[in-house]
């Protein structure tokens, strides 16, 4: 199944995000804000030795994601691996790590925070890799990254 999928959907250049735990592929696409950028292929529910619950794969044609962009994936799927493809070959295998900062894509759960009341930009800095915990630049509270705090293309 996995073998066939790779053959059918292989891309000649772009970015392949592999080993996303099922069913997080759509959230990965949302967190990367990849709504309208070229051809996007999403495969879900492949079998995987590393992820017994199954894995998802996202392929983005003709777009090489930056390290800052791929590190955002670590917020929800730290197991994910990145392959950068050029001329039909893998030219870079990339591991992801937690971003030092998060801008825009996470909201602060504190209802009395300037980001929620006064229109301040949503900015967090990494406080602890365990959790992981991020500290809001405005109210200074630390927050565990939870899926419902991440902002999707639909708004929240």
């Amino acid at each position: 199944m996995t073998e066939r999928a790779y053959k059918v959907y292989s891309i000649s250049s772009g970015t392949v995000i592999d080993h996303i735990p099922t069913p997080l592929a759509l959230r990965v696409v949302e967190i990367l804000g990849l709504g309208n950028e070229g051809i996007l292929t999403i495969g879900m529910g492949f079998t995987s030795k590393r992820l017994p619950e199954g894995k998802d794969i996202v392929k983005i044609e003709n777009k090489v994601l930056t390290r800052d962009e791929t590190d955002m994936i670590a917020l929800i799927a730290p197991e994910a691996t990145i392959n950068i493809i050029e001329g039909g070959k893998v030219i870079e295998k990339r591991r992801i790590s937690l971003p030092d900062g998060i801008r825009g894509v996470m909201r602060c759960p504190n209802p009395n925070c300037a980001t929620n009341v006064l229109g301040a930009q949503r900015v967090f800095g990494l406080a602890s890799p365990e959790g992981p915990l991020y500290r809001c630049r405005y109210c200074e509270r630390t927050t565990k990254v939870e899926p419902d705090l991440l902002i999707t293309s639909a708004g929240i």
Binding site: N110, N112, A114, T115, L118, A120, C136, C139, E140
Partner: peptide, 22 residues
Amino acid sequence: VEGSARLASDIASVPVINAGDG
């Protein structure tokens, strides 16, 4: 509001002193 003084310091061109933000 928590973070109001930080936001003010982002906007102001003079120094801001926080005298209590929530």
